[in-house]
Amino acid sequence: LAKNITGLSGYQTYHYVVLVRDENGNVSIYSPASIMTLDTTAPNIGSGLVFSNIDRYSVTATWGAGSDTGGSNDVQYKVVRASSAAAIDTVAEIQAISGSNIIRDWASSTSVNATGILSLTTHFFNVIMRDGAGNMAVYSPASFNTPGTIFVTGGNFAGDFTAPNETRPEAAIAKADYQCNHDANKPNDTKSYKAMVVLTGVRVACTSANCATNGANEHIDWVLKPSTIYKNLQNNIVDTTSSTGLFTFDHLNNDDPDDPFYGLDNPIFGSGNYAWTGMRANYTSNASQCQNWSSKLSGQTGAVGISGSYTNTVLFAGQTNTCDTYIKLICVEQ
């Protein structure tokens, strides 16, 4: 004999007993039995991912605690990452994530400090939660951008981008990039760097003042990414670029109330060393570029910026140096 019982709650213990009687009304009782029903209800997620303390190689991720309506409780969370939001927006996709893409395995806390992540990168994280019965629910993926690094070379270079008594086989801009990637001040990472130097037709920031005419379409192999935070080697924010990929120089510096000015949040370098740029203060190319950055002769000149400046004189100091001068390069992470 059997009886189908419906309307029960999940993850609850029910106790049953069976009575039997004969035609004369005599009653006997079976031994009682108990059963726990299964929890098949997915837990409810909490509020979404929020990122804080975003640095070049680390971030803190927090999210709202979920709840278990099925009764099994013991809620835990796992945090994963991927190269796109679409790759981690279902239970099956997240369950397939393995290795270093698991930021944190199952645990009960609702925050994690992720370290060892790539700088100058858009990262996509997501959280999956489970209850004590193994039912799962997925939060919505969220993204953040890690800052990039900008630094000034320790080495000094002539207008052909060679150090004293050095010859190099690369073309002009490639030679400047080589110096950035082999300089003692380059961070100890696997990323590549390019020199913030322009050369008509090879590396161009803007063809109109501040790229006002065609925006980012004016760039050729430009070194700054749009809407990106850049930090100096002291881990101070230099500036956040515009959607066009230019420093905006819009931070109000009023440490001296008698002389406030707008500029970078912090300088690229702590002192005012000159650096080759080949630019004007509005990001357009300067005609003075040491014979297309091929000359180290005293009779020719190249446009320079001030690496320790807060203002757009970091692009153009209002002067040129003779090409036999050995000065700095400004290097930007790619």
Rank of each mutant, 00 (worst) to 15 (best):
N4E: 03
H15Q: 11
Y16C: 10
D22C: 01
D22K: 02
G25D: 02
I29N: 09
S31H: 08
L38P: 05
D39H: 01
A42C: 05
A42W: 07
A42Y: 03
G46R: 09
G46S: 11
S47L: 10
L49P: 08
R56D: 00
Y57C: 11
S58D: 08
V59E: 07
T62H: 11
W63T: 12
G64P: 02
A65H: 03
G66C: 00
S72Y: 14
N73F: 13
Q76W: 05
Y77Q: 13
K78S: 15
S84V: 01
A86I: 02
A87W: 14
G99D: 07
S100K: 04
S100T: 07
N101K: 12
D105W: 02
D105G: 04
N113H: 15
A114E: 14
I117H: 04
L118A: 11
S119K: 06
S119P: 10
N126V: 08
V127L: 09
M129C: 14
R130N: 15
A133V: 10
G134C: 13
N135E: 15
Y139N: 11
S143K: 00
F144Y: 08
P147V: 05
I150G: 03
F151D: 02
N156P: 02
N156H: 03
D160N: 14
A163E: 15
E166V: 02
A176S: 10
Q179E: 11
Q179R: 06
N181F: 05
D183S: 08
K186C: 10
P187D: 11
P187F: 10
N188M: 08
Y193E: 00
A195C: 06
V197F: 03
V197A: 06
L199A: 00
G201W: 11
S208Y: 01
A209Q: 09
A212W: 00
A216Y: 02
N217G: 13
I220K: 13
D221Y: 02
W222P: 12
V223S: 00
N232I: 01
N236C: 06
I237E: 01
D239Q: 03
F249L: 05
F249V: 04
D250W: 05
N253H: 05
D256H: 06
P257L: 09
P257Y: 10
G263H: 07
L264A: 09
N273Y: 15
A275W: 13
A275G: 11
W276E: 02
G278H: 06
G278T: 03
A281S: 15
S288M: 06
Q289E: 08
C290F: 03
Q291D: 14
S295M: 11
L297T: 11
G299D: 09
T311I: 07
T313S: 15
A317Y: 00
T320W: 05
T322S: 12
Y326G: 11
L329K: 04
I330P: 00
